[in-house]
Every structure is written in structure tokens, then in C-alpha cells.
Design a protein around this nucleic acid. Structure first.
Length: 923
RNA sequence: GCGGAUGUGGCGAAAUGGUAGACGCGCUACUUUGAGGGGGUAGUGGGAGUUUUCCUGUGCGAGUUCGAGUCUCGCCAUCCGCACCA
């Protein structure tokens, strides 16, 4: 009889047992409380999983299993975010269909995931590239196309309601979110032909097509969303990105900016993540103000946005963004050539260059002048790239005395600077602080800045010069990608009109094409598809971006096989929203914004019952790699050990970490690793070759990738799971360091030893001693609290402490060990199942009952504390029974102390401070 | 520049304002000759002392408190996010 801890056998056995018995298949059950635990589904890349990926999955799996043990009906699904650029790039290079490589990658991911023993309900698996799934992505898009946003009601409404509002009262009948506001009366609306009406409505649709300045990435041949660009480079691939005007599909996310911001407060997310979103949404409160502007004989109203209405008396010029529509109108005939020259210079710059040249002040005078609405002063209108077209109105009033950017501009172009705050010095820099007493400001003189801002806005509103306005930085999401491997738009074009393809024709499936490159004329790959048309009308050739498929996937898991709806009302009302969502921070301003927007849109239409998709969110940290280095003496094939390397001139070379254990290099394996090292020689220290190390990103080129499969081979999935949790706090980034894994593995072997000795099972039915019960209940209390707090590293430590105590007590009692393995089962499910089975249970441990914590059993039954006082005085306090307030006070009197009594309960610890006070700590 | 987080042994890390360093790794000594990642015992922040023990110690500097790794303020350093957002 083999009585060793044979994790390979055990893990394979239970993984197939769970699969056969469909242990984790979840069914809606109104008699039990629900709990929805979700991982951010992975993009199945060609490289497979490394040891960092499962960190969050393990954490969520532990919580899922814990919740099941506590009687919850747990929804814990998994799927794949399977559309995307890398598969398509690979297809372009190799000609392989992205569907094939994606499926291969998914199969590999699945094998890797299965080995770790996750409790996913795979019957609910979804893939965003599956037509049965993307049907509902297309459906949602059509719904957005068919809706407008009512700013007064703060919700999306069907476009038909907008049409009838226009028919009754023209454009002023509603307060709607729109791209370009064009005023018209009901009569004018009635006079529009259908094409014109369509054009007008397009400005209001939540999914709309319109010209906008986009992030164009020439290398990838596609536009990108703001969150897909970082510092002027594409997040995927790191290619330069430039600004370009293009007609693109967009989602009116900006209409939801206020709600996206306000509803953050109620979410159980970290402050840093909420702040990131707040930042990204970028609410600022101020006012719009109209400046009458004169270009020769022409007069225009230029609307500017400012948060500092109080500084309007210090305006010495206006500035337009180069892309602003006013530029053309306000360029005087004699300035035309210079303005054109400046605009072409600006256009040539990539986003990257614009950012890196932040310090260089550039601009050009338009030739026009504006009238300050409060002072009547005439000020010049300039054009400069420091004003952004996409924010506010694309035009600003410049107050150089109190804005550093305006100040730099004024200094460069010799424009006047008027200080407005008493005693401020603007001789070398602007005074930006919102602090001080106003001067040179007419009716605002004498007020503080904080009083002056609302006073100025009130004045502006009362005199019809402008209005209060809240501006958001959040932009509409550009929704077209000039790529093949994404959801097709259910849209076709006929006689210049945009026609939605009816719901009952969905899914509109991706057609086969011969090659995945864009066409010669630069059109998207779908332009190559034969017969890509609907009833004779050409279908849109762009596809949807990556975030389309991931925006509502959590809803589909609730009801993945529903043919008639994204999610049925019953399923939605049962599962509601995600209770716990675990994933990386990298989605803070992408997926997590879009998903919230998408959910709110569906909420407005009554398809989902919760305002927010993800109630609690945890960002797991990254696991970095720990690279190992060997040191080759320059010009030789001799390698010198880390401690001796300073005696030679060496180059540092990454050594594959599979050749290294506890920083010691397996020199023979190293020789076989690469041909060039076959005859390598080594200078050892103490008979060993010690490697250097560094923490770096886990990547193939650093030879520091740890594959979870290898860890499962060597130590087993349970050890991997425990170790990843033991490594440190979940949210923290930390390097993968194989050193400590032996300790965790040893722990599991010792757990096994409590059940088995060399002769077989030693589990017995003897009655537990108080000491054993104390160990157990301390553990129950600690582990329960730690799981609830997601403090998994300390939970694992608690197991080790309990184990040490029970091993010391030679405890093999069922009364202790059965609850212990239930506690352990979320962390190490395979060994727990095996021992549960060994203890005589036929069923799975998955639905056992979480042990009841009895605090009374954890109290010391006999304990005398020696207390030192003033370094000399000593007395003892018997804490054998719980002490109440009276007993404490008695001790205090006896020793002439003063005391502060804290709380009630059992006193386990007394601390005496020399001279004064006894403070009683209650545990 | 703005916002957020973090700073504790040789290492990963613990500590409702209450004996700092639990637990694990590593290391040291002893032990068991079952060394295909063996088992056990003891020790392990630094310094002093033959023993009981003492001093010192959580990035730096103040403050609150009987008491601060923990709370407050100011620095310093590191990491992350945003960044000409008017």
C-alpha cells in the first residue's frame, strides 16, 4: 500500500472526478443565496499561461469554494476574450486563419487551467469570437444605434421618441446628448427630406457614425481608442500613433460621464482604481462664455470654457485649437499663408512629438479680434496647439497672469499680462493658486477667489453672456477598427444611407477572406470579402474593437445558451451582478469604463436590473520574473560564480531559470542548454556555481518564464495554489521566487502525515483534547476572517501554525482533522478531496459545511502572566478564567495602578507600563 | 506638475494604537546512515553579557498618546496612474 503523498495521482484523479460528476455545474436555485465570482477572462495568446496569470484565478477560486462551503449558490464561470490584434497579426505573417490559431491557443489554455484544479462551470464557457456570442454584441450595438440620450431624464431612449419630439417642438424640445447641435423648428424638421433627417438623427444616436479626430496607428493599420494609446504609442506593439480626422463609428460614452462618475462612490473598489476612473472621466465645473469675434466685416460668436470665470478681467487674448472649426472662419485674409503654414506643421507631428515638445511654445496670430464680454476690451485671437480640440469648446480665454500655460505663451509672443490678485508677483511666473483677494476686476474687487468664481458666473448668466457648465474629459469611444478579426457591424449602406441589419438576421457572421492584409487602397480586410453585402447593399467593412466583446460578457454567463435574449429576465434577476470581480489594473480606464457604460445602457432599456456590473473589485498584483545571471569572463568561455565575479571582467548573461535551483546553477545542464556553452568551464565558490539575480518582467527573452505546468509536475497544483497565495498580499506585485515553494510543499506532506503513517490510515475517533480543540478553533477563526478579508497569505500561515501544533500533539483525530481539511479545501482542493474520501465520505468536499467557530475553545485554560514593573517589581496575574471589569479593577487597586479598561470579553494579555497605567487588551 | 500607493531582518512577509519581526525561505549547530529535492531538535534583527538579563531597533524629522511600525504634519526614496484638461 502506497501511503505517501502522491499528488500527481491524487490531482489527476480528482480533476477527472469533478469533470465526470459535473461537480461545478451551476443551476439557478432561488432557495439559496447567490454569489457571482468572476475573473477577467484571458486573451488566449500564443505564449500560453505563465505562473503570473493564475494568481487572480486562484484567489477567486478560493473565494468561490469558500462561498459554496458556506451554502451559497456560486456562479464561477470562465471564457475567452478571443478577438484581437495578435491573432490577426499572426495570421498576416503566416496565412493561418485567426480562428484556427485562436482555437489552438484556447485548447492549450484550457489544458493549463484544468491542471490547477479550478472550480469553473465550464458548461457556461463563452468565447467572444463565437457567432452565438457575438450575436449579442451586435444586438447591443443595434440597440445603441436605435437610441438617443435624454440629458434631463438621464437615460437612453428609443430614437423614435426623439423623432416625434422633433416633429412637435423642433430641436429645442429635448435636452439631448449630441455631437453637433443644429437648431431647427418643428416646421423645418417636417420640411427635411428623409436623408437629412437621418443625418440629423445620427448626431443623437448612442452608437453613431461621424467624423472625429482619431488615434491612427499606421503600423497596425487601424484606429485605436484613447485607452489603447499610451504616451503616443500603441499599447499593443508599441507603434507610433498620430492624430487624423476620419469618419468612424463611435459610442456616446460621454453622455454617461456624470453617472459613471457618481455611481463610483457606492462601489467596493479600491480608492486608487476609483481615482483612476475619476481622473479619466475628468469632471470640471466652470462656465461657457461667448466672445464676440470680428474678422474684418464678419462677426462670429466664439464660445470658450473656463473654470476661472473670476479671471475674465485679465483676459489678454483668446486661443483656438489648430483643429477648431473657428480657425478657418477667424483667419484674416492677410494671415492666411502664415496660419496655413502653422497648421501644416502641427499636422505633421505625431502624437509623440507633440507630447515631447510640451515645453516649446508655438502659435500663430489669426488676424481676428475678440471683445471681452465684461470689459469690452478688444483682444487678439491666436491659434496654438496647447489648446486641445477635443476638450471643452476647443477655444480658451487666456489669462496669462493666472495660468502658467497662458503665461508661457504670452511671454513668447509678447502679449500683455494683467495681474488680478492683490500682492501677487507675476514678473517671472504666473500665480495659479485659487487664493487671494481680487483686484483690477471691476465688480469682483475685494472678493476672495473662492467667492469671485461663483459671483462671476452668476453675472455671466444674468447678462446672457454664457452659462454654467460641467465639462468632462471622457471622450466618446471610437468603435471602428480597420481589421478582420473582430465582430462585423450589422450595418449596410444604401444610397448614402446607414441601414441597420434587422435583429432576426443576427448573427452577421464574419466572412471568409483569402488574405488578412488591408487592401491596396488601404481599405479594411473585409473589403476583400466576396459578396459582403446585405440585400445588395455593401456591409460595413470595419469591425468592432476588442472591448466590444468584453463589455457584457458577465451578463452572458448568467444565461449562456439563451437563443432569444442576451440574458433572460429570470436569470438576470437571480444573478443580478458580479459580487466579486478579480483582475488586473490595466483595464482601469478601458474595459472597466466600457463595461459600466454598456451595463448602464442596458439598464436604461430595462434589459438588466442592476446599475453597476461589478460590485466588488480586486486588482491582483503582477507576478514578476526572477531572472538568473551567469558571468562569462570576456573573451573566454569560462563562467565565474557570482561572489567572485568582481575579480574578472565579465559580461552578464541571462541563464534559463530551469537550470538554476536556489541560485545554484546546474552546470551540466547549462552546458547542454545551448551549443555555444557545450565546453563551458566554471570557476566555482565552495564547490558551487552561484548565479546573480534580478526582478524583471516575466518574458521569454529573459529566460525567466515559469510555466505552471512545470510547477504542477514537480510539486502539484495544490502546492502551486498555496504557494501563490503565500507569496504575499494579493494586490501587491511580487517576484516569483521558487525558493519558498519547498516550505509549502512540506506543509502538505505533513498534512498527509496526520492521516497516514507508513502503515496506512491512522485517522481515529478519539475525543479531542482541549489543546487540540484550541488549535482547531483558532484556525477556524483566523482562516474565516482572512478569507473574508482576502488576506490569503496570512491564512496559509495560520494553517502552518495549526499544523505545527497538531503535529506536536500527534493528533490524528477525526474530530479535529475533518474540519481542518474542509478549511483547507478552498486552497488545496485535491488533497482535501482525497483525505475527505479517506475519512470515509462518499461525496465531494465541495459542498461540505464550513466548520462553526467557537471562540470559547480558543481561550487559554491555564495561563499565568508574569508582569514586570519598573524593570524590577513583579507580580503575576492569573488569566485562567476570563476577567471582567471588576477583576481588572481589583488588580489595579492591589498594585496601586491606574487603568483603562477596553471592551469586554476575555482578557488574554496584560501590559504594564512603568509608573502609570495598566492597559487591558481584550482579544 | 496633479492624483494614488508603498517604505519593517539576508529574503518573501506578520502585527483591532499595546511584548515588533508570526509563518515560510535561507543560514548555523546537533541528531537520524530512508540523500529521486529526507526527517527531527535547537538557534537565528543588531550590540553587550558566563546564567537570570540589559541596551538598541520598523526610510528621515517633528507631533498626539501612559504607549506609535500603526494616527497627524513636514521631508526623502521607490512604484503606479494621468498629464498643455483651460
Amino acid at each position: 500500500m502506497n501511503t505517501d503523498y502522491n499528488f500527481r495521482e491524487i490531482e489527476a484523479k480528482w480533476q477527472s472526478w469533478w469533470a465526470e460528476h459535473q461537480t461545478f455545474k451551476t443551476v439557478e436555485d432561488p432557495s439559496r443565496p447567490k454569489y457571482y465570482v468572476l475573473d477577467m477572462f484571458p486573451y488566449p495568446s500564443g505564449a500560453g499561461l505563465h505562473v503570473g496569470h493564475p494568481l487572480g484565478y486562484i484567489a477567486s477560486d478560493i473565494y468561490s469554494r469558500y462561498k459554496r462551503l458556506r451554502g451559497f449558490n456560486v456562479l464561477h464561470p470562465m471564457g475567452y476574450d478571443a478577438f484581437g490584434l495578435p491573432a490577426e497579426q499572426y495570421a498576416i505573417q503566416t496565412g493561418q486563419h485567426p480562428e484556427k490559431t485562436t482555437n489552438d491557443n484556447i485548447a492549450r489554455y484550457r489544458r493549463q487551467l484544468d491542471r490547477i484544479g479550478f472550480s469553473y462551470d465550464w458548461s457556461r464557457e463563452i468565447r467572444t469570437c463565437d457567432p452565438e456570442y457575438y450575436k449579442w454584441t451586435q444586438w447591443a450595438f443595434l440597440k445603441m444605434f436605435g437610441c438617443w440620450y435624454d440629458n434631463d431624464a438621464q437615460k437612453a431612449r428609443p430614437i423614435e421618441e426623439l423623432e416625434s419630439a422633433f416633429a412637435q417642438g423642433g430641436s429645442s424640445a429635448v435636452n439631448a446628448a449630441c455631437t453637433e447641435h443644429e437648431a431647427f423648428t418643428a416646421e423645418q424638421w417636417a420640411g427635411f427630406d428623409s436623408l437629412k433627417k437621418e443625418e440629423v438623427l445620427m448626431n443623437y444616436r448612442i452608437a453613431y457614425r461621424g467624423e472625429t479626430s482619431v488615434n491612427w496607428c499606421p503600423k497596425l493599420g487601424t484606429v485605436l481608442a484613447n485607452d489603447e494609446v499610451k504616451e503616443g504609442y500603441s499599447v499593443r506593439g508599441g507603434h507610433p500613433v498620430e492624430q487624423k480626422k476620419m469618419t468612424q463609428w463611435q459610442l456616446r460614452v460621454s453622455a454617461y460621464a456624470g453617472r459613471l462618475l457618481d455611481d463610483l462612490d457606492a462601489l467596493d473598489w479600491t480608492d486608487s482604481l476609483k481615482d483612476m476612473q475619476r481622473n479619466w472621466i475628468g469632471r470640471s465645473q466652470g462656465c461657457e462664455m461667448v466672445f464676440k469675434t470680428v474678422n474684418g466685416s464678419e462677426e462670429y460668436d466664439v464660445t470658450i470654457f473656463t473654470t476661472r470665470a473670476d479671471t475674465v478681467f485679465g483676459v489678454t487674448f483668446l486661443v483656438l485649437a489648430p483643429e477648431s472649426d473657428w480657425v478657418e472662419k477667424l483667419t484674416s485674409a492677410d494671415r492666411k499663408a502664415e496660419v496655413e503654414e502653422y497648421l501644416s506643421q502641427v499636422r505633421k507631428k505625431t502624437e509623440r512629438e507633440r507630447i515631447s515638445q510640451t515645453r516649446n511654445v508655438t502659435g500663430v496670430f489669426s488676424g481676428s479680434y475678440a471683445i471681452n464680454p465684461l470689459t469690452g476690451d478688444k483682444v487678439p485671437v491666436w491659434i496654438s496647439e496647447y489648446v486641445l480640440a477635443g476638450y471643452g469648446t476647443g477655444a480658451i480665454m487666456a489669462v496669462p497672469a493666472h495660468d502658467s500655460r497662458d503665461y508661457a505663451f504670452a511671454k513668447t509672443f509678447n502679449l500683455p499680462i494683467i495681474p488680478l490678485i492683490e500682492g501677487c508677483d507675476v514678473s517671472s511666473e504666473s500665480f495659479d493658486a485659487k487664493d487671494g483677494i481680487m483686484c483690477n476686476s471691476g465688480f469682483l474687487n475685494g472678493l476672495t477667489v473662492k467667492e469671485a468664481i461663483p459671483a462671476a458666473i452668476d453675472y455671466v448668466e444674468q447678462h446672457g453672456l454664457g452659462r454654467r457648465k460641467i465639462n468632462y474629459r471622457l471622450r466618446d469611444a471610437i468603435f471602428s477598427r480597420q481589421r478582420y478579426w473582430g465582430e462585423p457591424f450589422p450595418i449596410c449602406y444604401k444610397d448614402g444611407r446607414v441601414i441597420p441589419i434587422p435583429f432576426d438576421k443576427l448573427p452577421l457572421e464574419l466572412p471568409e477572406i483569402s488574405t488578412f492584409l488591408p487592401t491596396e487602397s488601404g481599405e479594411p480586410p473585409l473589403a476583400r470579402a466576396e459578396g459582403w453585402e446585405y440585400e445588395g447593399c455593401p456591409i460595413e467593412t470595419c469591425t468592432m474593437p476588442g472591448f466590444a466583446g468584453s463589455s457584457a460578457y458577465y451578463l452572458r454567463y448568467m444565461d449562456p445558451h439563451n437563443q432569444d435574449a442576451l440574458v433572460s429576465r429570470e436569470a438576470d434577476e437571480y444573478w443580478r451582478n458580479v459580487d466579486l470581480y478579480i483582475g488586473g489594473t490595466e483595464h482601469a480606464t478601458g474595459h472597466l469604463i466600457y463595461s459600466r457604460f454598456w451595463n448602464k445602457f442596458l439598464y436604461d432599456l430595462g434589459y438588466v436590473c442592476e446599475k453597476e456590473p461589478f460590485r466588488k473589485l480586486i486588482n491582483q498584483g503582477m507576478i514578476q520574473g526572477r531572472s538568473s545571471f551567469v558571468y562569462r569572463i570576456i573573451g573566454t568561455n569560462t563562467f565565474v560564480s557570482f561572489g567572485l565575479k568582481d575579480q574578472y571582467k565579465t559580461t552578464e548573461i541571462h541563464a534559463d531559470i530551469s537550470l538554476v535551483h536556489n541560485d545554484r546553477l546546474d552546470t551540466e545542464a547549462f552546458k547542454k542548454w545551448m551549443p555555444e556553452y557545450a565546453d563551458a568551464e566554471f570557476i566555482l565558490e565552495n564547490g558551487e556555481y552561484i548565479c546573480g539575480s534580478a526582478v524583471e518582467k516575466m518574458s521569454k527573452s529573459m529566460f525567466n518564464v515559469v510555466n505552471p505546468d512545470n510547477v504542477c509536475d514537480t510539486y502539484g497544483a495544490d502546492t502551486l495554489r498555496l504557494y501563490e497565495m503565500f507569496l504575499g498580499p494579493l494586490e501587491q506585485s511580487k517576484p516569483w521566487d521558487t525558493k519558498g515553494i519547498d516550505g509549502v510543499h512540506r506543509f502538505l506532506k505533513k498534512v498527509w502525515r496526520l492521516f497516514y503513517d507508513r502503515d496506512g490510515l491512522i485517522l481515529n475517533d478519539e475525543k479531542a483534547s482541549p489543546a487540540e480543540l484550541k488549535s482547531l478553533h483558532k484556525l477556524i477563526g483566523k482562516v474565516t476572517a482572512d478569507i473574508e478579508a482576502f488576506s490569503y497569505n496570512t491564512a496559509v500561515a495560520a494553517f502552518m501554525i495549526a499544523l505545527n501544533e497538531l503535529t506536536e500533539l500527534k493528533c490524528s483525530k477525526r474530530e479535529i482533522l475533518e474540519p481542518l481539511i474542509i478549511l483547507l479545501s478552498p486552497f488545496a482542493p485535491h488533497i482535501a478531496e482525497e483525505l475527505w474520501h479517506a475519512a470515509g465520505h462518499e461525496d465531494t468536499i465541495t459542498f461540505a459545511q464550513w466548520p462553526q467557530y467557537n471562540e470559547a475553545l480558543t481561550v487559554e485554560d491555564s495561563c499565568t502572566y508574569a508582569v514586570s514593573f519598573n524593570g524590577k517589581t513583579r507580580f503575576t496575574v492569573d488569566l485562567s478564567k476570563s476577567l471582567g471589569k471588576e477583576e481588572v479593577e481589583a488588580i489595579v487597586r492591589e498594585h496601586s495602578l491606574t487603568a483603562k479598561y477596553v471592551g469586554d470579553g476575555k482578557i488574554v494579555k496584560m501590559i504594564v507600563v512603568p509608573g502609570k497605567i495598566v492597559n487591558v487588551v481584550v482579544k
